Every structure is written in C-alpha cells, then in structure tokens.
Simulated scan of single mutants.
Amino acid sequence: MIRRRSTPWIHRWSRPLIAAIAGCGALTTGYLTIEKLTGNSAACVAQAGVKGCNDVLSSAWATVFGQPLALFGFLAYTSMVVLALAPLAVNREQNKQPRSNLENLTWLLLLAGAIAMSVFSGYLMYLLAFQIKATCPYCIGSALFSLSLLVLTIIGRTWEDIGQIFFTAIIVGMVTLISTLGVYAGVNQSDVTPGTSGQPTKITFTSKGDPNPAFGWEVTTTSGEAEIALARHLAKVGAKEYSAYWCPHCHEQKLLFGKEAEEIINNDVKVECAADGLKAQIELCKAAKIEGFPTWMINGKNYSGVQNLEELAKVSGYTGPRNFKYFK
C-alpha cells in the first residue's frame, strides 16, 4: 500500500498567514496615511529631544510624488492580501486547472512583491538609522512585516526550480533599488516657486546636507514688513514655537518668515527641543508634551505642523499688514 505524502502544514497555511501579515501592514500604513493627510500626529511615545515617529513622518523621505509614502505601502500590502487569497476563492474540485494556474501566477507575483518590499524596507531602515536618525516602531514593524512575507513566500510552497527564486530576487531587487535611489535623488534640494505678480511665493523645502546644531540650515528667504511685524506680534503675545534644528518642516517655517523675521522668532519665540541643539530647553518641551515639530502654542492652544503666516496672524489676533511674501 502506497501512502500519500502529507502536505506540510506551512504549505497549507502559508497563504492565510501571508494575508494576515499583509493585512496588519495595510492597517498600519493606512493609519499613517490618514494621519499624514489630515495633518495629525501619529500615536507614538516619544521623548523630548529624541526623534520619533512624527519626525520621520515629517521628514523629506516621507513624501513620494507629492503623496505620503505610507499610501504606497498601504497599496503594496493590500495587493499582497489580494494575491494571497485570490486562489482560495476558486473551487478546487470544479476548477482544478484554472486554480492551479492562478496559484502558480500569484506565487510568482507574491515572490516579486515580497522581494521588492523587503529591499525598499531595507533602504528605509538605512535612512532611519543613518539619515533621519530616529526611532519609529511603525517603520520597524513594517520592515518586519515585509521580511516575514518574503520568508513565508519562499517556504510556503515547494519551488521546483530554486534558481527561479534567486533569478527573481536579483532582477526585482536591482530594479527596486535603482528605482528607489532614483525616486529619492531629488531629496537634497530646496525649491522656491515664484508666484504671479503681486501674489505670494510658494515655499517647499527638503533637507540639503547636514543641519548645523546652532541654526539648522541657512535661511535663504528675506522678510518683508508684514513678516517682521507678525514676528514682533507673536513675541509680544507670548507665543511659542517648539522646534528642533534638524527638522526639515521647522526650516520650512523659517523660510516662510524670512531671515530678518526669523531672527526675532529665534530670539523671543522659539523653544529648541533637540538635546544637542543650541540653547536646548528640554524640560520646557517635556512639560508642553510636544509630539512633533514644529508645534506652535498660541493663546493656550497648540497648532501642529508648518503654519502659513496668514493662519498665525489669525489665531494670534494680529492686526498689522498681511502682504506676506510666502506660503506653503
């Protein structure tokens, strides 16, 4: 009597496991996408002066093609869920051959997807450790999800040709890495888009080189009378701007004010929260329970993120000239 070889449990459960892990990744990245698009801060335990999740989400690398990076992660994880479960929706007994074909196709797509996600996550871990220098549980969790998907895809079935795995890994890995480097090639540059005659100028900024602990990056814009008047008003009413010298969005806020007005903000309004920054006031940042930079505190209310000067004028009760030169 010939015994039928039993199917390893990992082969039986690999697709549901892949779908479950990818589902967790989709929930995580979906949450981050919503927080990024709505301008809210992600729930993250952080210490003042130490870069955390929200600093990562506000960094230059957190936006790709004008959209949150987390959105692309959500789409990738969702695709993995669909690929993992698609063959299970086909009746094996009634559609044996079509299901077999679909299984083979989706396994290849799962393998390619898992390799691409793992390579991209590896590059993001490099950025997290050596460029942004922050701790982000969401980012680390996503990287672990991607690696788990790759492992399950490899061991979750019997691959007749092991060389196929290596060939796919090399091709997909190289394409992913080259594409990633290409996407982020434009990170180290700033952009000032002139407005039409009589209109304010649009300001965007992405980090260029390493910031100086004394002042961050150089402010290249100049102030007008409205910017200077608003800066003096904010100082007069006791407004506070909690920031960190290494924060790209904090520098974007500086560009909106311009060099001359920023000197007033720096001397009378700004609270430096980076532990190694010039005149750091860590205890004040802790007491204010600051979760992300920049955060404005005006008349007892907090305003997170870069604020257009028109908005700062409105919430602070400023009544002077409002012909501001820049907007974000």
Rank of each mutant, 00 (worst) to 15 (best):
A86I: 04
Y138W: 05
G198N: 02
T168I: 15
V119F: 07
P321A: 11
S118E: 00
A84S: 11
G156D: 12
L230E: 05
E241Y: 12
Y31D: 06
S6K: 06
L37S: 09
H251K: 06
Y245Q: 15
Q67N: 07
I178G: 14
T221C: 03
L71P: 04
P294Q: 07
N267W: 13
Y31C: 07
V306I: 11
D161K: 10
D268H: 11
L88W: 13
V50E: 11
N308P: 00
S59E: 05
V306L: 07
S179V: 15
A235Y: 10
N323T: 02
T135R: 08
P8K: 01
G173N: 08
I10G: 01
M117L: 13
I228G: 04
K328R: 09
K96S: 14
A129I: 09
K133A: 15
Y326L: 00
L181T: 03
F145H: 00
E225P: 11
I170G: 04
W9Y: 08
I115C: 09
E227G: 01
A26S: 05
A22V: 06
L152C: 10
S207D: 14
K36Y: 01
I10V: 14
T319P: 03
A280M: 10
T180G: 11
Q199F: 03
L83K: 09
S118K: 02
L124A: 05
Y245A: 12
I165K: 06
N40V: 09
K279A: 12
G317K: 13
P68Q: 03
E260Y: 05
A287H: 11
A114K: 02
G300P: 02
G182Y: 06
S148K: 08
P68Y: 02
S146C: 07
C273G: 14
W61I: 10
Q97K: 15
E225Q: 13
F293A: 11
V172Q: 02
N95K: 10
E310A: 14
L127W: 04
Q131D: 14
I170T: 05
L111D: 00
R4M: 12
I2R: 13
N308C: 05
Y242F: 15
R322A: 00
A26V: 06
T201Y: 01
A229P: 08
T106M: 04
G66R: 01
I140Y: 00
S100R: 12
P98I: 03
E225V: 08
I162K: 14
A86N: 01
R322P: 00
T319Q: 12
G39Q: 03
K202M: 04
L278Q: 15
G198V: 01
C247N: 13
T153S: 07
A287Q: 15
M125R: 00
E252K: 13
L85S: 06
Q131I: 14
A46N: 09
T29G: 05
L109I: 05
R5A: 14
S316F: 00
G39W: 01
F74Q: 00
C139N: 08
L312E: 10
T222K: 13
V64L: 15
A214Q: 12
G216T: 02
K254V: 04
L127V: 13
I290P: 02
V56I: 09
A134S: 09
L284S: 02
V183D: 13
V82S: 08
C136I: 03
S79N: 05
W61M: 10
K270Y: 05
S121F: 08
